[in-house]
Amino acid sequence: MAAAAGPADLATIAKKWKDKRGSLIMALHDLQGRYGYVPRDAAQELGKHLDVPLARIYEVITFYNYFKLEAPGKHIISVCMGTACYLKGAPEIIAKLSDKLGVKAGETTPDKQFHLQQVRCIGCCGLAPVVTVNEKVLAKVKAADVVDQVYACTKGA
């Protein structure tokens, strides 16, 4: 997630997808991969390269859950809300984290350190409830320990 991505990246992304039909979503994945979200200017620029109206880009970005319009915090905490995780206490985990961080799911802390979000089933139901912190997966999490576990993951990062 490079913050210092620039126009050169955009041109590369556009070049990679320009000749493939219907590649807008793939190009947006690449864009978000570089920036961590889809900045408005970048979307506009990408649209020019791909010859896609901004209207179409926003229709798509706001339809799909995966795309973010604002820069998330440094650490992304995702609480799985699949059925197994839900039954095994994911709501309590969300509540605990939300309480501790002072933000609701889908929000970023004011100091931009943490972004708390709910995610759809990540397919690890056997390990429910599951929380991911950036790339790290925490399995069989208990609401009582979750805050410490999350902090442990982000220490030094």
């Binding site: 408005r40 979307a43 109206p53 901004l54 209207a55 179409r56 880009i57 926003y58 229709e59 706001t62 339809f63």
Partner: peptide
Amino acid sequence: TFMERGIETRIAPAG
């Protein structure tokens, strides 16, 4: 354009 989805779906000028 249509923005968002589900119950939040709304018409809005591009972006």
